[in-house]
Design a protein around this nucleic acid. Structure first.
Length: 472
RNA sequence: GGCGCCUUGGCGGAGUGGUUACGCAGCGGUCUGCAAAACCGUUUACACGGGUUCGAGUCCCGUAGGUGCCUCCA
């Protein structure tokens, strides 16, 4: 079975056929580094991380490019009046994004180009557009260059809208435009703007418009035609529509497939600064273990709206604990049998089919839980061959999704000194409790268990002895 | 006004024509000295009204409510 993806442009599930067999080029619109990352940024990055991991698992060589928009109105605005330069602000925020991505195991892209590093490529496209009659420099002395939407009959093809039906943008800077729907390719430098934010160009000093950067960077690194273009649903229009129009008008075939991830809603509404309901990455990272956060953000289908609600992370924590419990228990139980270390990393067919079906992660996760259930049952039956087989499957599946709770990437960064000290003390108490239980002194045994419990340490009695673990 | 999306059991969240999604929470049971964990069972869901069909959360039409984009946005 081949991978099928929902193409936003076709509005249909389509078979994925790469341009070059065995290779996939993906371009994803990354963040404008104007302010701290929030839950939506993480969700988006995670969605394409899942895609990238699945393609890699399937044997593709993936070239994954996710840009950083480091020059834009908002960045200049946010730096205005502060002692921090706009470029310092952009870089500081970029580092925050990188840290947040790393925290939840989003693999670094193959390359992460910054818009400011591709100004010449943007200018080259603009020049081609002007020469082709699809763009014009204004004659009002501003140095602005606009895309001429009326000159491009296919304008609106991505979002299936007719130019005439679109509400004219209430754009205060539209004086030089031929049509209010035309969008900026190049913005002439304005009085008072930092000179560091102006690049020389055939149309005068200035800076790029928002959309042109993605046309330039995607084709620069992936070629004038490439496989997949992704981004948040809110970027479909105008950003992606404009990207597509200017790239096609400039003669590039551009993306073969368009993917859009769903947004995050808080109490039924899209998160936004004006509503004051933003959930920032830093809050999430502080309130849940990284693997739990990754599980939660990735467990819903990438095209669905993800509802953030109180208790969501606790639910995810319980689900992850269930998986971890099996992995932990199975490895411990198999350790002193001939099945130790024999688990083969096998992806079950049902999991593969789910992932191939437009990345149906919810169903893939259901396969994991089902396998965990069967694995636990096998453990209860002391069927170690079956346990080992299912252990391998769960490990393989959770690895592909990046949610293996036992993966070294989730290990705490502590040096282990404190942990060893704790283990020594706890094991002493556990041993005391075992002694008490043998003499049927359950009062003492239960007291030790209660005291450990109050310290956040759980005790589980198993056929092979008591096992302790830290809660959470 | 234009282009979309959503409405599933206590909660989250899959499912696009015909057998249990799955997770969390609850309840009952097995196991256990008691627990915990685990397993088994269970709570008979698909906004509403029509229609198509042998058969519809699942397709069609309509109604209601919610929501996204059209302005910076993952």
């Amino acid at each position: 079975m081949t991978l099928r993806l929902f193409d936003s442009k076709d509005r249909a599930l389509v078979d994925f056929v790469p341009l070059v067999p065995g290779h996939v080029g993906i371009y994803v619109c990354g963040p404008t580094v104007q302010s701290s990352p929030h839950i939506g940024h993480l969700r988006s990055a995670l969605a394409y991380d899942q895609l990238r991991r699945w393609l890699s698992y399937c044997g593709f060589t993936v070239t994954y490019v996710r840009n950083v928009t480091d020059i834009d109105d908002k960045i200049l605005l946010n730096a205005e009046g502060s002692t921090e330069e706009w470029w310092a602000l952009a870089y500081r925020v970029e580092l925050e994004f990188t840290a947040a991505y790393n925290a939840i195991g989003v693999l670094p892209p193959t390359y992460e180009p910054r818009a400011t590093a591709s100004i010449p490529e943007m200018q080259a496209i603009i020049t081609r557009l002007i020469e082709g009659g699809h763009a014009y420099a204004t004659d009002d002395g501003t140095g602005d260059v606009y895309f001429d939407t009326a000159s491009w009959p296919d304008y609106g093809e991505l979002t299936h809208q007719k130019l005439d039906d679109m509400a004219p943008a209430a754009d205060s800077d539209s004086r030089g435009k031929k049509d209010v729907r035309d969008f900026a390719l190049w913005k002439g430098h304005k009085e008072g703007e930092p000179l560091t934010a102006a690049w020389s160009s055939p149309w005068g000093a200035g800076r790029p418009g928002w959309h042109i950067e993605c046309s330039a960077m995607s084709t620069k690194y992936l070629g004038t035609q490439f496989d997949i273009h992704g981004g948040g649903l809110d970027l479909r229009f105008p950003h992606h529509e404009n990207e597509l129009a200017q790239s096609r008008a400039a003669g590039d075939a551009f993306a073969n497939y368009w993917l859009h991830n769903g947004l995050v809603a808080v109490t039924g509404q899209k998160m936004s600064k004006s509503l004051g309901n933003s959930i920032f990455a830093s809050e999430l990272i502080a309130s849940a273990k990284p693997v739990v956060l990754r599980y939660y953000l990735g467990a819903a289908h990438y095209r669905s709206t993800l509802e953030y609600h109180e208790g969501a992370l606790e639910e995810a924590e319980a689900a992850v604990a269930r998986i971890e419990g099996f992995l932990d228990r199975a490895e411990r139980r198999l350790a002193d049998t001939r099945f130790a270390g024999t688990a083969e990393l096998v992806i079950p067919d049902e999991f593969r089919e789910a992932m191939d079906d437009d990345l149906s992660v919810p169903q893939a996760v259901a396969v994991i839980h089902e396998t965990v259930r069967r694995g636990n049952a096998a453990l209860d039956d002391e069927d170690f061959a079956e346990t080992a087989a299912l252990l391998g499957q769960v490990l393989a599946m959770t690895e592909v999704l990046g949610i293996n709770p036992l993966s070294p990437e989730w290990a705490s960064g502590e040096d282990g000194v404190a942990e060893r000290a704790l283990a020594t003390l706890v094991e002493r108490l556990v041993s005391d409790r075992e002694t008490a239980r043998k003499t049927r002194d359950f009062t003492t045994a239960d007291r030790i268990r209660d005291e450990l419990g109050q310290a956040g340490i759980s005790i589980e009695d198993t056929p092979s002895g008591a096992h302790w673990s830290l809660d959470g």
